[in-house]
Simulated scan of single mutants.
Amino acid sequence: MFARYSLVIQPSPDVVLEVKAMKEHLSSKIGWYHSKNSMAHLTINEFEAPVNESDKIAHHLHSIASYLSSETVCFNHFDTFPNGAFFLAPDATSKLFLKDILRQVHEEFRYPTVLKNNEPHISIGRRLQEEQLQIAHALFDSPSLSFLCDRIALRIFNTSRKQFDIVSEFVFQGKTKGGTPLTLF
């Protein structure tokens, strides 16, 4: 039996709550919309794999995370994609760091993906109409959300709730390949 999985960067609980409040506020003005009930995250990829391989997947992700390093990231503005997505976007420094995390995970991840994200963002809404996007832009001031980006999370699609549920989290350990720490001097 196959399951649909999502690999994400998981923000801190306080950022998750702030994004949930933003989604609720937008919903109070435009009604229900796509992504309204989705917990805040930054998608890395989505893939399908046999359910009985979950331990292998977890071991693989633990290995990937062991070589990733943590850094505080800041989301300081809203933006949109042409497909009607309204999202929180990272500042320039955070964007570079997050893109590097995405690149490293994509390079090391050995399961075939059905979706691969290269543009770090936290969705507020998806598939919004132009009028809804205008309302969203007018509704919010410039955000200032930050969190320590120190983990990736494996999520599995819950067919009852029609949302992904977190299965496991993998904390970055900042190891260097080859076992020798890098030094500047």
Rank of each mutant, 00 (worst) to 15 (best):
F2Q: 08
L88C: 05
F75C: 02
K95R: 15
F97I: 08
S6V: 12
N158A: 04
F164M: 08
E24D: 10
N83P: 05
H41G: 04
M1G: 13
F81W: 13
G84A: 09
N76M: 07
Y67D: 04
F164S: 07
F75N: 00
K177P: 02
H137S: 13
R103W: 12
F185W: 06
E130A: 12
N118S: 15
I166Q: 07
V15F: 03
P120T: 10
H41Y: 05
K99S: 11
A40E: 01
F164I: 10
D55W: 12
F109E: 12
F157A: 04
Q134T: 11
P82M: 11
E131A: 09
Q134P: 01
L26F: 00
I156C: 07
H41W: 04
H59K: 15
E71P: 02
F47M: 08
K23D: 01
H25M: 08
L139F: 06
F172E: 06
N37L: 09
D150N: 12
T80G: 06
L133N: 04
A3S: 11
E131H: 06
D14M: 05
L68V: 00
F87V: 15
S12R: 03
Q132W: 07
H59L: 14
A136E: 06
T180R: 12
Q129H: 11
F140Y: 09
G174V: 02
T93G: 09
S63A: 13
N118L: 15
F78V: 09
Y5A: 01
S66M: 09
F87Q: 12
R110I: 15
E108F: 05
G125L: 09
S69Y: 00
I122C: 04
I122T: 03
P112I: 13
A40M: 00
P143D: 06
S28V: 04
D55I: 14
E48D: 13
L98R: 01
S142R: 15
P50C: 08
Y67A: 03
F157T: 03
H41S: 03
K175G: 00
R4E: 08
D150Y: 02
L88A: 05
I9P: 03
G179D: 00
G125P: 07
L96Y: 05
S144P: 06
S144V: 10
V19L: 00
N117C: 14
I30N: 00
A92P: 09
N117S: 15
L68H: 02
T183W: 09
R155T: 13
S54I: 15
E46A: 11
I156P: 03
P82H: 10
K162R: 13
P13D: 04
N158P: 00
L26A: 01
G178N: 03
H60L: 12
S94D: 00
N117T: 14
N117Q: 15
V15T: 04
Y67W: 09
M22G: 01
F147S: 01
